[in-house]
Nucleic acid binder design. Structure first.
Lengths: 218, 218
DNA sequence: TTGGAATCGAGAAAGTTTTCTCGATATGCA
DNA sequence: TGCATATCGAGAAAACTTTCTCGATTCCAA
């Protein structure tokens, strides 16, 4: 089960986002006591196209048996390994508001490739508080922390106005990837990884579909 | 500025998700005192392809002037109208944990097509509490509330295990769209709108890219 | 008034993702 | 053992999205 970097290029984003769905279903099947699974099974449960599932699953590098499918536990491990979920990366959090606090409480991130090891904020009220076991530190300490601990990931849960400067701070400390929850466009130098988690994107999609649905009903 | 339902079909999801990005940039430009904007301007600021921006903007139905672009305030209004962000829909929240509480605090949802008007939970500790001005009610009251107020949207911020049953409850009350924050696959009858907001999707993408990046550095 | 430059709008081309099709192979049953 | 069936794996086709190209229009400056 090796990761050939040359094979790891050119993976469709859409496939990447479907793997967690499979992963979750598979874990449910494990819990239900199953030991083998086929792409057709997965597709049936999730309402997806079987071929699409197969293509996605093939990406991980696993080889199945015709007429049988895959060994359930093996497929789970291949997905974990493919996504790097079995090698959790450290992350720092900027912004300990309600969203940031909620993120700090998500212990399960650890089993999905990430653990938040420190939290930072500018609010004197928040600094020094402990949230889910981590003490909130002054934001200005963030770059040093990242530098010393070689933290690869930064999570931004600040107001939009602060997002870019926080990102710059993270970059200055040597972070390599940013998970941005602030509703703001962030610019990073080339080679840095940016993952935006913008609720307003979903809200746009949801709102539009609802309007279209309204129109249909008239 | 009318919404022709026949024109509102077949909008690429990707375009729908880019509109909020434009919207935000445009508001920044308004704040900066600009009065006109071209697709080229937007593309430059956001690092996107100008043609793509133009195609997306055209979807809203706005007509621009060659050599000039669009009137800034007009474009903002067209996007709002296209997405339905100027006609906020009521929503009920199920699950008043840390994420649910954070969502209740997002007053800005109202300007983006949605307002959470009530919160529900099963935890006796939480029931009766006021969170950001709304009292948490017993989950079993949700269907009646939805029925009486004709609430179109349900937000699920419960643990994964409860997600499907909460969704069924919402459907039974006559909800039409569900915004699901629980990491669970939800099945809805045909015709219902489901928007999944799954942090693990992003985590998969982020983690994978980081691994690929690691591989490059070796 | 006229020429040049910038932009829109629309259609064509290229690229990407999803779906279809088919051959190979393993399993279970007669 | 031999046959029917389910599934993988791979390549082709179809659908969709993004990017390219070009003509039409408007503004600005000479």
């Amino acid at each position: 089960m090796q990761n050939n970097p040359s094979l790891r290029r050119e993976i469709p984003e859409a496939s990447l986002r479907r793997l967690p769905i499979y992963y979750r279903s598979l874990q449910g099947m494990v819990a239900a006591g199953a030991s083998r699974v086929s792409c057709a099974d997965l597709a049936r449960v999730l309402g997806l196209d079987p071929t699409q599932v197969r293509k996605d699953v093939e990406m991980t590098g696993i080889v199945g048996k015709p007429r049988v499918g895959y060994a359930l536990d093996e497929l789970v491990r291949w997905i974990e390994n493919f996504l790097g979920w079995n090698r959790p990366k450290d992350a720092v959090l900027a912004g300990a508001g309600s969203l940031g606090s909620a993120l700090l409480g998500y212990e399960r991130f650890r089993r999905h490739g990430m653990q938040i090891v420190a939290a930072f904020d500018t609010d004197p009220e928040k600094i020094g508080q402990r949230i889910h076991g981590r003490e909130v530190q002054p934001l200005m300490f963030l770059p040093d922390f990242v530098r010393q601990h070689k933290t690869p990931v930064g999570v931004i849960a600040t107001p939009a106005a602060a997002a870019q400067s926080v990102a710059d701070l993270m970059v200055s400390g040597g972070i390599r990837a940013i998970w941005n929850f602030a509703p703001a466009h962030i610019h990073l130098p080339d080679g840095f990884i940016l993952q935006n988690e913008d609720l307003y994107h979903s809200l746009a999609s949801l709102s539009f579909k609802l309007e279209a649905n309204n129109a249909l009903r008239r």
